[in-house]
Amino acid sequence: MPMPNEYQTASQQFDRFLEDAREALDLTTRNQTYTCVQGVFLVFRARLTAAEGLRFANELPAVLRAIFVKDWDIGREPRPFLSRQEMAEEVAHLRQHHNFSPVTVIEDVARALRKHVETKTFDAMLETLPQQAKAYWSVEGHEI
């Protein structure tokens, strides 16, 4: 079996995602963008069980999947979902002295992510998660 294309082109796919996320977030650097993306993923991941998180990760492009699962303590109890504003504040606390997350960081990253996943299977996967998890990834004009 040949190597899957998603692994052969993982770096290029990640670069395209980062550019879309940088534009959505209105940031200037890849480092700023990466911090926002990582923060959005970590805040979301903290609210999922391992089984839920792996279902989510399976729908991500390869590099984003790796970022999502890296260093995950699957033994921790999921935290409760909060308002989007409160969770955006959590995102902003990751490397807070170097974090340029706008208040719309979660929706901005969600909008960029939707350009890089198979929308139908992504939405079907979100239907298997708690309602608040689905809401986390909703964007204006695309409610699940």
Rank of each mutant, 00 (worst) to 15 (best):
T121I: 07
R111E: 10
P130K: 06
R79V: 10
R22E: 02
D15S: 13
T49C: 05
F44K: 04
L54R: 14
R22L: 02
H142L: 13
M3L: 15
R76E: 12
A88V: 01
V139F: 14
F81A: 06
R95W: 01
V105S: 01
F41A: 01
I106L: 11
I106A: 09
H97R: 06
D15C: 11
R79H: 09
R114A: 06
R76I: 10
K70L: 15
L113D: 00
L27T: 00
E140N: 13
N31A: 07
A112L: 11
L129Q: 05
L25Q: 00
D73E: 14
E143S: 13
V69N: 11
A66R: 13
M1H: 09
E107I: 03
F17Y: 09
A92G: 14
D20F: 03
E52H: 06
Q13I: 12
E140Q: 14
E89I: 07
S138K: 12
T49A: 04
D108E: 10
P61H: 09
K120C: 15
A124W: 06
V105R: 02
T35R: 04
Y34P: 00
E143N: 14
R84E: 07
K120R: 14
A46C: 06
G141F: 08
I144M: 11
F14V: 03
Q13P: 07
A62R: 09
T35L: 08
L60G: 08
V69K: 10
T119R: 15
R47S: 08
P78L: 06
F14W: 08
D15F: 11
Q12E: 15
L64M: 12
T119Y: 15
E6S: 11
T104Q: 04
S138I: 13
G141H: 05
W72C: 07
I67G: 04
A21C: 02
Q38I: 04
E19D: 13
P78M: 07
H116P: 11
E127W: 15
H98D: 11
F100C: 04
E118G: 09
